[in-house]
Computed example of a mutant assay.
Amino acid sequence: MECRPGCGACCVAPSISSPIPGMPQGKLAGERCLHLSVHMLCDIFGRPDRPLVCSQFVADPEVCGGSSEEAIRILGWWEQATSVA
C-alpha cells in the first residue's frame, strides 16, 4: 500500500519517543508533529534527521484502514493497546 496523500495520521496519532527536529522530547500521542504541513505531508520526509521510527513506518491496510479518519482510530487504538500504564 502507498501512503494516502494528505492523510498524516501517522504524524498525529502515535507517540514518538525519539527526538524530532524542533521537538527534542519527541511527541505525545494525538499531538500533531511540528513537521506535518498544512497539506498533511511530512516536511522532513527523506531528510537524515527524520526519526528512524518515522522512516521505518510502512503504510498497510491493517494500520491505515480505508480513510484518514479510520487510520487515526486504528493508530490511536494501537497506541493505547501498547502503552505502558
Rank of each mutant, 00 (worst) to 15 (best):
Met1Val: 13
Glu2Ala: 07
Glu2Cys: 03
Cys3Ser: 09
Arg4Val: 07
Pro5Cys: 04
Gly6Phe: 08
Gly6Trp: 06
Cys7Ala: 06
Gly8Tyr: 07
Ala9Asn: 07
Ala9Thr: 06
Cys11Tyr: 06
Ala13Gln: 11
Ala13Gly: 02
Pro14Cys: 09
Ser15Lys: 03
Ile16Pro: 00
Ile16Gly: 00
Ser18Ile: 05
Ser18Val: 15
Ile20Met: 00
Pro21His: 10
Pro21Ala: 09
Gly22Ser: 12
Gly22His: 07
Met23Asn: 02
Met23Gln: 11
Pro24Ser: 05
Gln25Gly: 12
Gln25Trp: 08
Lys27Ala: 02
Lys27Gly: 12
Leu28Val: 09
Leu28Thr: 14
Ala29Val: 10
Gly30Ser: 09
Gly30Met: 01
Arg32Phe: 12
Arg32Met: 14
Arg32His: 10
Cys33Phe: 11
Cys33Tyr: 08
Leu34Ala: 13
Leu34Phe: 02
His35Arg: 15
Leu36Trp: 12
Leu36Ala: 08
Leu36Pro: 04
Val38Ser: 13
His39Gln: 14
His39Tyr: 04
Met40Arg: 14
Met40Trp: 12
Met40Pro: 01
Leu41Thr: 13
Leu41Lys: 08
Cys42Ser: 13
Asp43Ser: 14
Asp43Lys: 09
Ile44Asp: 09
Phe45Val: 06
Phe45Leu: 12
Phe45Asp: 11
Phe45Ala: 07
Gly46Met: 08
Gly46His: 10
Arg47His: 04
Pro48His: 13
Pro48Ala: 11
Pro48Met: 03
Asp49Cys: 04
Asp49Leu: 12
Arg50His: 02
Arg50Lys: 11
Leu52Met: 12
Val53Glu: 08
Val53Gly: 02
Val53Ala: 14
Phe57Ile: 02
Phe57Asn: 04
Val58Pro: 00
Ala59Gly: 03
Pro61His: 03
Pro61Lys: 04
Glu62Lys: 08
Glu62Leu: 13
Cys64Gly: 04
Gly66Thr: 05
Ser67Asn: 14
Ser68Asp: 07
Glu70Ile: 10
Glu70Tyr: 07
Ala71Gly: 13
Ile74Thr: 13
Ile74Lys: 15
Trp77His: 05
Trp77Asp: 14
Trp77Lys: 04
Trp77Met: 14
Trp78His: 12
Trp78Asn: 06
Glu79Gln: 12
Glu79Cys: 00
Thr82Gly: 06
Thr82Glu: 09
Ser83Gln: 13
Ser83Asn: 08
Ala85Trp: 10
